[in-house]
Amino acid sequence: MINDPYKVLGVEPGASKKEIKAAYNKMVKKYHPDYYKEKHMKELAEQKMKEINEAYDYLLDNHQHYTKDTGNSKAANEGHRENGGYTDFNHIRRLIQAGRFAEARQLLMQAKIRNAEWSYLMGVVEISHGNYTEGRRLLEQAVRLDPANEEYQKAYQQTMGGTFFSRRAGHARTDAETCCQVCTTLWCLDCCCECSGGDFISCC
């Protein structure tokens, strides 16, 4: 699915069946191809209707996971242990950090659990593969499933701000490089001070 079904129908995540149906009817009235006279517009409206129908079918088929009727969207998040299909997301994270996206995607596809972390990791993999639309949709889904998670929010914001890759690369460099840079600077300062008769760090 290319577009977010919630966005297509204009409903909030966790909407009830009744709300989904009402939104669907509203969309059909708004975009029905019969309302358009021009050939091109008719064609466009047909495409839009196809999208609306797909989103409607998807939301009804997956209704029990995401609705107010069965609790809320966290139900999907907690399916992790209930389904018994353990997935080593830490291993997938390591693969992503090493740039082994194809392997990470393969493991994610095999995972039975599709919780917020799965959506986030899959989103990162899709974006790294150049599938920005799908990656963005998955990151949005991760944020929706776990709104309190800063990592998911940051990834989504960086995607929309066009800094996703530079921030990630910067992040990976910071710890090791900054530490080395500080140590080298201190050592240089100490050497300079000692050469001119002073001492910057007395213990060495």
Binding site: Y31, L44, K48, G130, Y132, R136, M160, G161, G162, F165
Partner: peptide, 30 residues
């Protein structure tokens, strides 16, 4: 496509699409 179905002014449509889709171009540069 919904923008085209709802709006008549092409200049407004171009502006709105650019605003909605510019993240894509910035991301590919990054």
């Amino acid at each position: 496509k919904e923008l085209l179905l709802e709006e008549d002014d092409n200049a407004v449509i171009v502006k709105q699409i650019t605003e909605l889709e510019k993240w894509r171009l910035h991301l590919v540069v990054d």
